[in-house]
Simulated scan of single mutants.
Amino acid sequence: MHDFNAIARTYITAWNATDAAERAALIEKTFAADVAYRDPIMQGDSHAGIDALIAGVQGQFPGFRFTLKGDADGYADTIRFSWALGPEGVPSVIEGTDVCQIEDGRLKTVTGFLDKVPAR
């Protein structure tokens, strides 16, 4: 049995970690070594790939923070949760929902959907 909310919170914490050593430890805790991440804008594989994605988002949106929207939902080895990204204290700029497969307590695959994106 998985604690879906704990998994989602750790995932969000990893995306918010700006210290490289802290982020690496969170990535190892949260993601399987051979994780595959896909969303409409980016993709990455392995811990190094996830680290590069997180660093890229932090570079593109300095000072923005990820937050969970509501509780995670799941069954068996599948988890779904929604998140928001934006500066603290103001409405989010980007929102999404991720559906993930869990293996040995860590995320094996992440498929992301963008629910709200700014107009270009």
Rank of each mutant, 00 (worst) to 15 (best):
Y11F: 15
S82I: 05
F4D: 09
C100T: 00
L53C: 10
G56S: 11
L85Y: 00
D98R: 02
T111I: 08
S46C: 07
F64R: 03
S46R: 09
A33H: 03
W83D: 06
T13M: 12
A24R: 15
G44H: 07
F4V: 02
A21T: 15
P91Q: 00
H47D: 01
T30E: 02
S92N: 09
F66Q: 08
L68H: 08
A8L: 06
R120K: 15
G89W: 00
A84R: 06
I94G: 03
I79H: 02
E95G: 07
E22P: 15
S46E: 07
G96C: 09
T111R: 11
L107P: 08
Q60F: 10
V35R: 07
Q101D: 09
Y37I: 02
T10P: 11
H47Y: 08
E95K: 10
M42S: 15
T78L: 07
V57T: 11
L85C: 05
T109N: 08
I12V: 15
R38G: 04
W83L: 07
T18R: 12
V117R: 14
A72H: 07
L68D: 05
A24Y: 03
P118Q: 09
F61K: 00
L107T: 00
H2Q: 14
T30Q: 06
Q60D: 13
I12T: 14
K69G: 01
F66E: 10
T30Y: 07
I79A: 06
A119K: 14
F66W: 05
I41N: 09
C100R: 02
P87C: 04
A72I: 03
A84F: 04
W83H: 03
V90R: 03
P118N: 08
Q58N: 06
Q58W: 05
M42D: 11
L114N: 08
F66C: 09
G56H: 09
D3T: 03
I27C: 10
I7Q: 04
G86R: 03
M1V: 15
A25V: 12
R106M: 00
F64G: 06
I12R: 13
G105V: 02
E95T: 12
E103N: 09
I41S: 10
I41C: 05
P91V: 00
T30V: 08
Q58L: 07
D39N: 13
A32I: 08
G112Q: 03
